[in-house]
Design a protein around this nucleic acid. Sequence first.
DNA 1: TAGGCCATCTGGTCCT
DNA 2: AGGACCAGATGGCCTA
Length: 212
Amino acid sequence: MAPQPPGAPAVLQGTHQTERPFPVAPSAEEPCLVSAPPSPTRASGDPVEAEGSGRRGAARRLRARRGGRSRPKSELALSRQRRSRRKKANDRERNRMHHLNSALDALRGVLPSFPDDAKLTKIETLRFAHNYIWALTQALRLADRSLDGLGAPCEELGSPGGGSLGDWASLCSPASQAGSLSPAASLEERPGLQAPASPACLPGALAFSDFL
DNA sequence: TAGGCCATCTGGTCCT
DNA sequence: AGGACCAGATGGCCTA
């Protein structure tokens, strides 16, 4: 996937999404909210107000206690309330997704660098991170063994079938066995992508796609 | 033009 | 009641 060009609605591009914490997209409900006339029934039709004056206190208190919380609302009031709640829910959902994208960007930041023009997609980022962590774990394990005098050769990292490095990463990685939605194929067309921070005892020429 | 990726909206569900 | 989370739908943008 090519990088988002300027103007594209990228996640963190310094456009409206970073400058406006909660960008509110033009919503179909907005015109309704703005143009909705004030409720004509509110002033004169409110049941509480209508029966409020002139009644004995006991009956009124009883009624208030019984139905005070769920006072029936007019259709217009209900509609307004629904729109208001939906709008707030949309804002929260947008904010939540922004936080999620920020976390995803932070994850991209700690992963081995890659050419500027090759921003990882969301699924690529997750798979890359998963496999990269797995690879680092393997490296640490082997390093520990070496320190213990076992002298584990790096071939232990080799693929079970003696395949290529790509096979090693893709076959051994738990992520590669995890699912069927692997986007690795799309990354194979990124020959320039390398993992520069090859840990000790890891094959230094691992291709970027090997982690995906 | 088809397909991929993305942001957003929306309704449902669960939890506090 | 309201918030968090989720998944489906939708439309925009971009590339091959």
